[in-house]
Design a binder for these strands. Sequence first.
DNA 1: TCTGGGGTCCTAGGACCC
DNA 2: TCTGGGGTCCTAGGACCC
Length: 421
Amino acid sequence: MNKQKRFGLIDCDNFYVSCERLFNPSLEGKPVVVLSNNDGCVVSRSKEAKALGIPMGAPFFQWKEFFQSHKLIALSSNYTLYGDISSRVMELVEASAPLVEVYSIDEAWVDLTDSPSPYEDARELRKKIWRWTGIPVTIGIGPTKTLAKVASKIAKKTDNLRGVNFLSNEDQIIAALSTIDVEDVWGIGHRLAAKLKELKIHSGLDLRNADPFHIRKLFSVMLERTVWELRGISCFDFEENAKPPKQILSSQTFGKALFQLDELQAAMANFVNEAGGKLRRFGLAAGSMTVFVRHGSFPGQVTSATLRFIEPVEDTITLLDKGESLLQSVYKPNRTYTKSGVLLFDLQPRENRQLAFWSRKEEKEEKLRTLSQLLDDWSMGRSKPALRVGTELFSENWRLRAERKTPSYTSRWKEIPTVRA
DNA sequence: TCTGGGGTCCTAGGACCC
DNA sequence: TCTGGGGTCCTAGGACCC
């Protein structure tokens, strides 16, 4: 019999809003939201904003009047800042447990299986993160990942738990699941929830009590695993963070609709530059590349073109060259373009590549690699790289709006806050 | 001819997550 | 005027093979 596992989930409270509050304490206690790229929709809400009924993902333009009449504060997102604060939080988490999986910018799993006092450990860690970074977190603990999620979900809406919830026995688990809507179970989206409700499965407890094999037949193995997890049998284990990505996507909705090929080329060059940088940071080369554009009125149509390389490619210059041809093949004049992007996939470790046959070719590749590296170095930490691939300079029209952005307090010298004594 | 069974590989699309 | 971006996993169906 395997030893019962114990998973802890560390989850930052409304993370983006909390980051903004670090540098602007006047936002404390007020309803605040952070908007997605392009100031399109709401992606993070303070407690006060949630209480006013703003849903996650609400399109900002539809709520503008509501914001004004309720004195709601909306901020553009500042991902450089959030990434920086995140790594400070994660450093503390990583020092706290033998096994840690950073799951997203604001969440991490920790292995508490061998801890003699998980609850006290969690309290301690929460206090430490708060003192050292100023970020409030909630910690849920349970015998499976799915149950740890449930624990944290409940902690977030129950003030007297003070940010830590440990589901340590069967009775507590059953009680907790009876208060959770099936839609709030990890892995159940609104589509599955609707189908489950037709089967009279409304709460987390109903799903736990459903027959896993029946669920598998009606839905999928994934959902079956969720049922087992709710019963305390772990199916989703820790995953190594070193796992390289399987695809790299860089895309954006434009600040305004575009028509010209050269404007699209400028945007595409930027996406390639970004995707290429990420490719090399992971030591990967791409086997295939897709360029896509969205056109027509919302939500519009997507047209794409894909190229499979004869040999995996890692340098930005080649990617850029192929990207241009791909874009040309999908471009038609007199269309309104609203979004585009570049997708790199069939990723493989660089070492796997066949050695070039001619030394000449090797030399050339070496040069391209150095040049790409140079581009990466120059781009680091700058929102506007000083050195860029020529095409990027063509047009800035695709760039998005960020009218409410706060400064990059921690990552750009010019924007570090000054303190007056 | 109205039609087998078993396998693999690939792709597109659905669903979910943060 | 205005609706994010970056991912993963699974499944069904088609092509192809013996």
